[in-house]
């Protein structure tokens, strides 16, 4: 596929926003169960939510660049029964709304207990909003992942690993950002985030490597033989009917060499996993927000490469029809 930057930014930025939100809420839950020092500083959650929102909004903006008719974007909520894209379009604003409320609730300190847990712990609006947000956040991950995973003839994508990796990579990048954020404004929990960021990055590594290994062993289900319905081991296209290119050659090909693709793979493998891990370790040890921010930056750059690769590696069966001109 042709990796469009709109979609690369859309998916990675959403991932960061979602991950960051998850990190915030995880922190709050830990504190709720007294596993972490409570964050009296109300701006931690509010500001965190704001940052998450910025990422989500940026992702949303990026998505508009992908549309031919952004002014009609509202129409895309119509087919939620069948279309993961439609579902994403519904879940994303809902999620953003909840994140917003979550931040607002923290900012205004809506801590009046609304109900209590069996153990007697009081549950306030922020907790409930956070829980709803978490659900929506995962729903959004699933929607985004499924947009790709549901396309069964894009065999590289058609696997649960796609959804898992969207969750893990988004989660990791959000937690790394949370670590840096905490290091800047709430030193005491930075270590906690650093730990989870490392764990998630490691898990994401496992997930992504698993999908790379899977894809390396994929046998394309379609061949020139099935594409034109002629059984013969030697079929070669000579002309595709258009010499100056067409939508089909622009949308479905990355236009780069296999060598370039391999380089990108090694690059993202380095940028997304080991480098951020080292920077997190160093940053956490040195208590340096700068290093931790660098960890996020490096990882995010890596994610752009990762997403580029994700698209580029997907070999659409339509490409069988668009191999040669003469």
């Amino acid at each position: 596929m042709h990796p469009a930057f709109s979609v690369i930014f859309l998916t990675t930025l959403l991932g960061v926003g979602q991950g960051l939100f998850l990190a915030l809420y995880t922190g709050q839950l830990y504190a709720f169960f007294d596993l972490l020092p409570a964050q009296g500083n109300r701006s931690f959650y509010a500001a965190g939510s704001a940052i998450a929102l910025i990422f989500l909004a940026a992702g949303l903006v990026a998505s508009f660049f992908h549309l031919g008719h952004p002014e009609r974007a509202w129409r895309s909520a119509a087919k939620w029964r069948t279309s993961w894209l439609s579902r994403e379009v519904i879940v994303l604003p809902a999620f953003m709304g909840v994140v917003f409320l979550y931040g607002v609730a923290h900012w205004f300190g809506w801590h009046v207990p609304l109900l209590s847990l069996p153990g007697g712990r009081p549950v306030d609006a922020t907790l409930i909003l956070g829980a709803i947000g978490t659900l929506l956040c995962f729903a959004l991950f699933v929607c985004t992942g499924m947009i790709y995973a549901c396309l069964r003839f894009l065999q590289e994508w058609h696997t649960p690993l796609t959804v898992v990796n969207y969750i893990l990579l988004g989660g990791a990048s959000g937690f790394v950002l949370a670590t840096a954020f905490a290091a800047a404004v709430a030193q005491e929990i930075a270590g906690f985030y650093a730990g989870w960021a490392a764990i998630l990055t490691a898990l994401a590594f496992a997930g992504r490597v698993a999908s790379l290994l899977r894809n390396a062993r994929l046998k394309p289900k379609s061949s020139l033989s099935t594409a034109i319905g002629i059984k013969h081991p030697r079929i070669a296209q000579k002309a595709q009917g258009a010499m100056g290119g067409s939508f089909n050659t622009r949308e479905f090909f990355h236009g780069r060499t296999a060598f370039f693709l391999r380089q990108v793979k090694w690059l993202f493998l380095a940028l997304v996993f080991p480098l951020p891990l080292m920077l997190i370790a160093a940053g956490a040890m040195a208590g340096s927000p700068a290093l931790l921010l660098a960890a996020f930056g490096v990882q995010y750059l890596g994610l752009i490469a990762e997403r580029w690769f994700f698209f580029a590696q997907a070999n659409h069966p339509q490409n069988l029809y668009y191999q040669a001109v003469s």
Binding site: M1, H66, L67, G68, H69, P70, R72, A73, R75, S76, A78, S83, L85, I147, L151, F153, L154, S222, F247, N248, E251, F252, H316, P317, Q318, N319, Y321, Y322
Partner: peptide
Amino acid sequence: DKCIGCKYCSWACPYG
């Protein structure tokens, strides 16, 4: 009149 030009359908067509 309804199409937003997201190209998603084209991704979902194996035939180009």
